[in-house]
Amino acid sequence: MKTQEELTEIVRDHFSDMGEIATLYVQVYESSLESLVGGVIFEDGRHYTFVYENEDLVYE
């Protein structure tokens, strides 16, 4: 089982391919040991929310 830090790094690596990240945040109250819920804001102003669970990243 991966730690929350490892899950965060996986998500950061994925989004870094889309541009320069200004902020990546995790909603700790919605996340667990198996899933990571949060959002990412890019330097150009784009903002996505995401759920990473079971090695699957869903964002909008």
Rank of each mutant, 00 (worst) to 15 (best):
M18T: 03
G38H: 02
L33R: 14
I21F: 03
V11A: 04
V28I: 15
R12A: 06
Y52M: 05
S16M: 11
M1G: 12
G19R: 02
G45T: 03
V58A: 09
D17G: 14
L36F: 07
E53D: 08
Y59H: 07
L36D: 00
K2W: 05
D17P: 14
V28M: 13
V58H: 14
F50H: 00
F42T: 02
V26W: 06
R12Q: 05
E43Y: 10
A22S: 12
S35I: 14
T23H: 13
Q4L: 14
S32C: 09
E55L: 09
M1W: 10
V58N: 10
E20I: 14
G38T: 02
L33Q: 13
S16E: 08
V40L: 04
L57N: 01
V51G: 03
H14N: 06
R12W: 12
I21C: 03
Q27G: 08
S31R: 08
S16I: 10
D13L: 14
E6A: 09
V51P: 00
S31A: 14
R46M: 05
S16N: 10
T23E: 10
F15A: 02
S16Y: 07
E43M: 15
E43P: 04
T23P: 01
I21D: 01
G38V: 03
D56P: 02
F42N: 00
F50A: 00
N54Y: 08
G38A: 01
Q4A: 08
Y25T: 05
T49A: 07
Y48T: 01
Y48E: 01
T23W: 11
E60Q: 14
S35F: 12
E30R: 08
V58Q: 11
E60G: 09
E60A: 13
N54T: 05
G39Y: 13
R46D: 05
Y25K: 03
H47I: 06
G39E: 13
L36I: 11
A22N: 11
I21K: 01
G39S: 09
R46I: 05
Y25F: 05
H14P: 01
K2C: 06
S35N: 07
L36M: 09
G38S: 00
E20S: 12
M18I: 08
S16W: 07
E5G: 08
L33I: 13
N54A: 10
E9T: 12
M1C: 09
I10T: 08
E60S: 14
E6D: 09
Y25S: 04
Y59D: 03
S16F: 06
M18K: 07
I10M: 10
E60P: 03
D17N: 12
A22C: 14
Y59L: 07
M18R: 04
E43G: 09
D44H: 01
S16V: 08
T8L: 13
K2Y: 06
L7W: 05
D56F: 15
H47L: 05
V51E: 05
E34W: 07
Y29V: 06
K2P: 05
F50Q: 00
S32V: 12
F15G: 00
Q4N: 05
F42M: 12
L33A: 13
L57Q: 01
G45A: 04
V51L: 09
E43F: 11
R12S: 05
G19N: 02
M18S: 04
Q27F: 10
Y59R: 03
D13S: 15
E6V: 08
I41A: 04
E30L: 10
M1S: 14
A22T: 10
D44G: 04
V40S: 00
N54H: 11
V37I: 12
E20T: 15
Y48L: 09
V51K: 13
E43T: 15
V51S: 09
E43V: 14
E6W: 07
E6P: 03
H47R: 07
D13H: 14
A22I: 13
A22D: 08
T23R: 11
T3I: 04
D44C: 03
G45Y: 03
G38C: 03
N54G: 10
E55K: 15
V58S: 15
T8G: 05
S31C: 09
M1D: 07
V37C: 11
R12C: 06
T49C: 08
I10R: 10
Y48Q: 01
D56A: 15
E6R: 04
T3P: 05
E9H: 11
S16H: 08
Q4H: 06
S31I: 07
E9D: 12
I41T: 06
Y59S: 05
Y59M: 08
D17H: 15
Y29H: 07
E5V: 09
E55G: 11
V40W: 00
V40M: 02
Y48W: 08
N54I: 05
V37T: 15
K2F: 06
V26M: 04
L7N: 03
E6K: 06
M1A: 12
S31W: 10
M18H: 08
V11S: 01
N54P: 05
D13R: 14
E20Q: 14
E5L: 13
T49Q: 08
L57P: 02
L24E: 00
V26E: 02
L7K: 04
M1T: 14
D56L: 15
T3E: 04
V51C: 10
M1F: 12
G19Q: 02
V37H: 10
T3S: 12
E34I: 11
L24F: 09
V37P: 00
L57C: 05
G39I: 13
E43A: 15
M18A: 04
F50D: 00
E43W: 10
D44S: 04
G39V: 12
E30M: 10
L57T: 04
F15Y: 03
H14C: 08
L57E: 01
G19L: 03
Y48N: 01
G38W: 03
K2A: 07
F42G: 00
Y29N: 06
E30Y: 06
V40E: 00
N54E: 06
F42L: 07
A22V: 14
G39F: 13
E34C: 08
M18L: 11
V28E: 11
I10N: 05
Y52Q: 02
E55D: 13
E9W: 09
F50C: 02
Y52E: 00
E30T: 12
I21S: 01
L33E: 10
L7G: 02
G19D: 02
T3K: 06
Y29G: 07
E20D: 11
L57D: 01
V28N: 10
D44L: 02
R46F: 04
V26G: 03
D13Y: 13
R12G: 04
E5Q: 11
D17F: 15
L33D: 10
Y52W: 09
E5N: 08
I41M: 09
V26L: 06
E55P: 06
D44T: 03
I41R: 05
G45H: 04
F15H: 00
E43R: 15
A22Q: 12
L36W: 05
F15N: 01
I10V: 08
S32F: 09
Y59V: 10
E30D: 14
F42D: 00
V11R: 01
S31N: 09
V51H: 11
V58M: 10
V40P: 00
Y59T: 05
L57I: 10
Y25I: 06
A22H: 11
V26K: 02
E6N: 07
G39H: 12
L24N: 00
E9L: 12
I21R: 01
F42S: 00
F42H: 00
L7H: 03
L7S: 02
T3D: 05
Q27T: 11
Q27P: 03
V37K: 15
D13A: 15
Y48G: 01
F50E: 00
G45W: 03
L57R: 01
Q4C: 08
Y48S: 00
L7M: 07
S32G: 10
V37L: 08
E53T: 10
I41W: 07
H47C: 07
Y29S: 07
T23Q: 12
E5P: 06
I10D: 05
E5T: 09
S31Q: 12
E9Y: 08
E30C: 11
E34H: 09
V51M: 10
G39Q: 09
E53P: 01
E53G: 08
I21G: 02
I41S: 04
T49M: 09
E30V: 13
H47W: 11
Y25N: 04
D44Y: 02
F42A: 00
E55H: 12
L7A: 04
H47Q: 06
T3C: 06
L57Y: 03
E43I: 14
V11Y: 02
F50K: 00
E9P: 02
T49E: 06
V26H: 03
K2V: 05
L24H: 01
E60C: 12
Y59E: 03
E34K: 08
A22Y: 09
V28D: 08
Q4I: 14
H47F: 07
E60H: 14
E53Y: 11
